[in-house]
Simulated assay, not measured.
Amino acid sequence: MAEEKDAFYVVKKGGVVGIYKSLKDIQPLIASSSDPCASGGRSLGVSSSSKLLQGAFQSDTSKISGSSLHSTNSQRQVPLGGSSFGLTSSQRQLTPEVSPLVSTNSQRQLTLGGSQAQLSNSLSCTLEFDGASKGNPGPAGAGAILRAADGSKVYRIREGVGTQTNNVAEYRALLLGLKQALQKGYRHIQIRGDSLLVCKQVNGEWKQKNQNMAMLCAQVNQLKANFLSFQINHVLREKNSEADAQANLAINLRAGQVEEDCEDLRR
């Protein structure tokens, strides 16, 4: 019998199964045994990739109990490289228990994903702004409505801006809302206003021809850099009525005076 490279030799004698690497080691057993292993004395080939497994079986003892190796015909047919080699049927039944671990891990990822979504939602808000001026220029006020994206709170904010034009009041209202949003910890913001000039200039679509407008737009851009996401859109006046109401109330405030009302919707 020629010795095959990288092969195991399994010999069963009585109730004991022995695994050997060399033909020379099993020659005495073959000669004296009338009960070769179920492979008919054939060597079970092992690929070079299985050398690590091969070494694992060449432990200090060369004999293992027959109940843990080749106890059934179906087990004899499993290659050494197979994942079920050397397992009893009861041991193989444990294999599906890996599935709950995968499911649990997926559940953790879903939970984590949910937590991240909740965190992002808690850092998000919408801002509605408007400015008012009686006389243009004249007594002016700035108003803003700040809404938490998770629906928990609504802030109504107003500021007196002295004698100013309507465009200045609009910019002051936007600045007022942005400052309040940052102070309250919001980092994602969606903005709506009925001033086409302010929305277009902040988006970079219109140039600031007036120096005063340019300075105010630069202040907005400085605050904008503190947000993780920032979006501003123009809306029609009738869809900005709440911010407009705050701006008209602010006309009666002294310049720089700020008032704020907060409604906690969770109560």
Rank of each mutant, 00 (worst) to 15 (best):
Y20G: 01
G18H: 05
D264H: 10
G204N: 08
I64V: 15
D60R: 11
S83C: 05
V16C: 01
H70M: 13
K153G: 00
G143W: 00
T88G: 10
A7R: 04
R187Y: 03
Y171W: 04
V202A: 00
S115F: 15
D244C: 04
K224M: 07
D35K: 08
D150W: 05
L29D: 00
G204I: 11
Q116M: 09
L236R: 14
G185N: 12
A181E: 01
S59V: 08
R76Q: 08
S68W: 11
Q93R: 08
V220T: 09
S49M: 09
S22W: 05
I191V: 06
R172H: 02
A214M: 13
P28Q: 07
A142S: 13
K51Q: 08
A149S: 14
L249M: 11
R237H: 07
F129D: 02
D194G: 05
G131P: 04
A247I: 01
F230Y: 07
A142T: 03
Q109W: 05
R267Q: 14
L253M: 08
S50T: 09
S99Q: 11
G141F: 01
A149C: 09
R92E: 12
V154F: 01
S84N: 03
K153R: 15
N212E: 15
P100T: 12
E238K: 15
S50D: 14
S120E: 14
K5P: 06
